[in-house]
């Protein structure tokens, strides 16, 4: 397998003592990474706000955990879509010196980093850490439909129904891998399914 340079490389959260504000957006799966990264940095925690995706069916008893973080503010959102709305607003109002931290599954990181990039926040202005779901976001190149949490290739497109091979080619602007018709040269003959989330 050749090294493919377009695959996103996620990092490890490490709060910068120089940043004046810290904006954290994460999924529940990323909470552990946030706890680890922000442990023992009181002065930073007092300048940190957390925006957490908590699905409605998620068990309660988490409030102690959130209180223990000692952040300036904690906001909860029911879905990725709703937290992304807040992310857009936060970035448009923030000042230089604000650092963005993202933690969660691949599909969440894909969408959040591509939104941040569209707002001019990229490179060393954003830190990421991958936790939880390893399913990938895939765009069907034929109908342009997006699918979240794809774990196998080929996969049937949710939108147009074609069988897609997931190419190891990633677009940061779209936050997705490319899915291309798997049986164009031999209709009905599909390659062996393989996991792509490993």
């Amino acid at each position: 397998m050749p090294v493919v340079k377009s695959r996103p490389v996620w990092g490890r959260l490490a709060p910068s003592p120089f940043a004046r504000r810290h904006l954290v957006f994460c999924e529940v799966a990323g909470l552990g990474a946030v706890e680890r990264a922000f442990a023992g940095t009181d002065s930073i925690r007092q300048r940190t706000s957390l925006n957490l995706i908590v699905p409605p069916d998620f068990a309660p008893a988490r409030s102690e955990r959130l209180d223990a973080l000692g952040f300036e503010a904690v906001h909860e959102f029911p879905s990725v879509e709703t937290v992304l709305v807040r992310l857009r607003v936060s970035l448009s109002q923030a000042a230089m010196g604000t650092l963005l931290y993202l933690a969660g599954g691949e599909a969440f990181l894909d969408q959040a980093t591509c939104l941040a990039e569209a707002c001019g926040v990229a490179g060393d202005g954003v830190q990421t850490e991958h936790c939880g779901s390893t399913g990938r976001r895939v765009q069907c190149v034929h109908c342009k439909g997006m699918m979240a949490d794809v774990t196998m290739s080929p996969v049937v497109c949710d939108h147009c129904g074609l069988h897609l091979t997931v190419r190891d080619h990633y677009s940061r602007r779209l936050g997705a891998f490319q899915g291309v018709c798997a049986d164009a040269e031999a209709p009905g003959v599909l390659p062996e399914p393989t996991r792509i989330d490993a």
């Binding site: 090294v3 340079k5 765009q139 190891d168 990633y170 940061r172």
Partner: peptide
């Protein structure tokens, strides 16, 4: 190759799928 997919990519990224060359 797809402009819509590659738009916004940098030089190294849009050459991603070429085998042998990166090595």
């Amino acid at each position: 190759w797809s402009l819509d997919f590659d738009l916004g990519m940098n030089f190294i990224e849009w050459h991603g799928p070429v085998p042998l060359a990166h090595e």
